[in-house]
């Protein structure tokens, strides 16, 4: 074998070594969390968080237990339920509105739409802080949502405190529309003009074209948008903290902040189990639809 060949092979080996090391860098915090979360708290020593609990086999690693996950579920159950009540409608609404806005601003041509669209795009980058105080004022002092919502509490499964989640759904919907519009618009620009033109000449109205042509063609984009929005809204803490505040309607990210800390110190197995449990829905979505997620974040 020539030296050039050996050289190339060594380079290739070095390349993979770096790639694997970087994979380790990204996975280690999650793996140590996972190993710790399945260690029984009594046997936890914290001396080898990089190893799974294999106590009789390897000393000092702790013994296997699913108890932290059970406790984490007990601690987070209400937050998880509230998060799902929040995330599902907010994701669907912001996706639908985003699709409608993108259609009205892309496939129907009119002057001034770029200006309106620029406002949508700028909305993506506005820090939440810039609207927090007005939003708190709005939901607590201006709109009597609490009393408006009271009659709905008579329905099964609806609680009086759900009004806070309604406020949060509307807020997240409004804040999600800009990014959804951007994602859909990129997609709608690529739709064939001839098809829409032909439908128009056949006398189809603006809304018929949307329902019959554009909507069916945007199903792949809806997947991207829903995955993106689901992750964003599920992961958010700041809006929940300031609009829902701590209490019955707390979402899972709020509940996670304080879990696993007591006078006796930090219960790391419980805390890691809780962190993973809170992340589980987004992790599952990511593992199943990683490509769609990547498509959403890079648009």
């Amino acid at each position: 074998m020539s030296t050039a060949d050996t050289d190339a092979r060594l380079k290739r080996l070095g390349l993979y070594a770096v790639l694997v090391a970087m994979a380790g860098f990204y996975l280690l915090p999650i793996l140590t969390g996972l190993f710790t979360s399945i260690t029984s708290p009594e046997s936890y020593t914290g001396q080898s968080p990089f190893l799974p609990p294999l106590e009789p086999l390897i000393a000092e690693t702790g013994s296997l237990s699913l108890q932290p996950w059970g406790n984490a579920f007990d601690g987070l159950a209400r937050g998880l339920a509230n998060s799902f009540i929040l995330v599902i409608p907010a994701t669907i609404l912001s996706g639908l509105f985003g699709s409608m806005a993108a259609y009205g601003l892309t496939n129907v041509d009119w002057r001034g739409q770029v200006g309106i669209y620029a406002l949508f795009v700028a909305g993506i980058f506005i820090p939440y802080q810039a609207v927090l105080v007005p939003l708190t004022q709005f939901w607590y002092n201006v709109v009597p949502l609490q009393s408006l919502f009271a009659p709905f509490a008579a329905f099964p499964l609806v609680q009086a405190y759900h009004w806070k989640l309604v406020a949060l759904i509307v807020t997240h919907t409004a804040y999600g529309i800009p990014i959804c519009t951007l994602l859909f618009r990129a997609h709608y620009k690529k739709l064939s003009d001839e098809m829409i033109e032909a439908a128009r000449l056949d006398g189809a109205s603006v809304s018929t074209i949307y329902r019959r042509i554009v909507l069916p063609l945007s199903i792949p984009m809806f997947a991207v948008v829903f995955i993106y929005q689901f992750t964003q809204i599920w992961n958010d803490l700041l809006f929940a903290l300031t609009i829902v505040q701590f209490g019955d309607a707390s979402v899972v990210t709020q509940e996670l902040v304080g879990i696993g800390v007591s006078q006796a110190g930090t219960n790391f197995p419980l805390r890691m189990a809780a962190a993973l449990l809170a992340a589980l829905p987004t992790l599952v979505v990511y593992v199943l639809f990683g490509d769609k997620f990547a498509e959403g974040v890079t648009a």
Partner: peptide
């Protein structure tokens, strides 16, 4: 096309 872009625009306009 207003029925399509106006409702989301009003939501963004009001809340953002």
């Amino acid at each position: 096309s207003a029925p399509f872009w106006l409702p989301p625009f009003l939501l963004v306009g009001l809340f953002v």
